[in-house]
């Protein structure tokens, strides 16, 4: 464990708490893509199946359980508790265009052709694009509540921090490198660049998140 990864994980945790806070204080999931949240459940379940047969550390297990439980809970909030505030008519990204290629990529690129390793690869590829329905929705509506942008920023920072983590590990752990996670991680971080530009130039200057018409 190094500082980059710890801060990255904490940023990931923070993003989930920000999202829960947004839903509970505004009593609304307006502006949140159900599809993106459903993809995250898929990602966590596919990746953390190893909870059943591999113990890494208490930290590792607790985080995995938290990510699965909180993502399922968010789906529950969107689908049941705050259902009337969820508007599927603006959440129109076609996720089959993400799922198909991710299945294909995971069958080609994996560390071992076994069920759990292919699922792990699949989860890595899917996570890298899971934010697209959310960003697409943002693009469509052209604006976002400030708290929603903080959620997205924390999520983007989490991924961005994994990059120095990999560089650090490569240097300190005798050339250890995980090309699948690194490639997907670079793509995932890249998807946030446009968002970050608006976030830093507008939201952090106290303005509303609004995209140019």
């Amino acid at each position: 464990m190094n500082l980059f990864r710890l801060l990255g994980d904490l940023s990931h945790l923070a993003s989930i708490f920000i999202l829960l806070h947004k839903i509970q204080t505004t009593r609304s999931c307006r502006g949140i893509s159900f599809k993106t949240q459903a993809l995250y459940v898929t990602v966590f379940v596919a990746r953390y199946l190893d909870l059943f047969y591999r113990y890494v550390s208490l930290y590792n297990s607790v985080m995995k359980l938290f990510f699965i439980a909180s993502s399922v809970y968010i789906l529950y909030l969107m689908k049941y508790k705050y259902r009337p505030t969820n508007d599927p008519s603006i959440d129109t990204f076609r996720i089959e265009y993400l799922l198909g290629p991710c299945v294909l990529l995971s069958l080609i690129f994996n560390y071992k052709f076994s069920v759990t390793e292919v699922l792990w690869s699949f989860s890595i590829f899917l996570e890298s694009v899971a934010i697209l329905p959310q960003l697409f929705m943002l693009q469509r509506t052209g604006e976002a509540e400030t708290i929603t942008t903080h959620y997205l920023a924390a999520l983007g920072v989490y991924r961005a921090l994994y990059i120095p983590n990999w560089i650090y590990r490569y240097i300190t752990e005798d050339g250890v490198v995980d090309p699948i996670a690194v490639t997907a991680g670079l793509v995932q971080t890249g998807l946030y660049i446009d968002f970050f530009y608006v976030y830093f130039t507008k939201v952090l200057q106290g303005q509303k998140f609004e995209l140019p018409a």
């Binding site: 464990m1 990864r5 994980d9 990931h12 190893d50 591999r54 890494v56 550390s57 590792n60 985080m63 995995k64 990510f67 560390y111 792990w120 994994y162 590990r169 050339g175 250890v176 995980d178 699948i180 996670a181």
Partner: peptide, 10 residues
């Protein structure tokens, strides 16, 4: 070096 991924990352 065999292709192995670090198993400790989230």
């Amino acid at each position: 070096k065999s292709a192995e991924r670090p198993k400790d990352e989230l």
